Amino acid sequence: MKITLVRHTEVDEKYHKKYNGHIDIGLSRRGIEQAEALAALLKDELFDLVYASDLLRSRQTLAPFIQAKNAIFIEELREKFWGRHEGKSFDEIITEGEIKYENFEQWIEALDGEPYEAYMKRVQHFFLEYLPKQNANTVLVITHAGVIRVLMAIVKDLSLEEAFCIDVPYASATVFDTDLQTFSTIK
């Protein structure tokens, strides 16, 4: 199976470099343009299935795609829920003084919200258990950077810190070949 993973396009600048999680934010003007460009890039692709996170930024990214009419919007493709830390930057959280950064894994576990283990299991279940049971050879998935990085960590056996150093910019498209267990960027 070939899964085309698309990170939603750019959101409003005030949400850049923040733990946005489940905040239902929309796209910036640039994000709308990026979505249109992605739709044009993938217009000739025939996908057996189309899935997207049910959050507004993913829905708006998918809107200009001709493949959008058959999309399935699901919570399982949402970013991690950060609880009371949602909408805050690293610096804002540090300034609050409740959490001190010691190392990446400690930091991730210290933040409020969905436990990281549960988040990883959610991503693993969708991509490695649920999708393979579907009758599909090609799948389009519009989701979030964290979901893509967690999938890469699981497949490539990377630490979370290594995976979160992988650049997954807004509007990026990556193909995950489940047979070869490889990731390749679409340009």
Score class of each variant (00 low, 15 high):
His16Lys: 12
Glu86Leu: 07
Gly83Met: 07
Leu55Gln: 00
Tyr19Glu: 07
Glu10Ala: 14
Tyr19Arg: 09
Phe183Arg: 03
Glu162Arg: 07
Gly21Glu: 02
Lys80His: 07
Leu41His: 10
Leu77Lys: 09
Ile94Leu: 12
Ala110Phe: 01
Ile72Asp: 12
Glu75Met: 05
Arg84Met: 12
Glu96Asp: 13
Ile66Arg: 14
Ile32His: 12
Gln60Cys: 03
Cys165Asp: 14
Gly97Tyr: 02
Leu111Ile: 07
His144Cys: 08
Gly26His: 02
Glu75Asn: 13
Ile142Arg: 06
Val123Phe: 06
Glu161Arg: 11
His8Thr: 10
Arg29Asp: 15
Ala173Asn: 05
His144Arg: 08
Tyr51Ser: 07
Thr138Pro: 05
Glu76Asn: 12
Phe47Val: 09
Phe126Tyr: 14
Ile23Arg: 14
Asp54Gln: 01
Glu129Tyr: 04
Arg29His: 11
Ala118Cys: 09
Lys2His: 11
Leu180Pro: 00
Lys187Tyr: 13
Ile72Gly: 04
Ser58Phe: 03
Tyr101Val: 06
Lys69Trp: 09
Lys18Leu: 04
Pro115Thr: 00
Ala145Asp: 06
His8Arg: 07
Ala153Cys: 11
Thr9Lys: 04
Leu77Glu: 04
Glu86Asn: 06
Glu98Trp: 02
Ile142Phe: 07
Arg30Ala: 14
Asp91Met: 11
Ala136Asp: 00
Val150Tyr: 08
Lys2Arg: 15
Tyr119Ile: 02
Glu79Thr: 06
Ser89Gly: 09
Arg122His: 10
Met152Gly: 01
His85Ala: 08
Met152Cys: 07
Asn70Val: 10
Val11Lys: 04
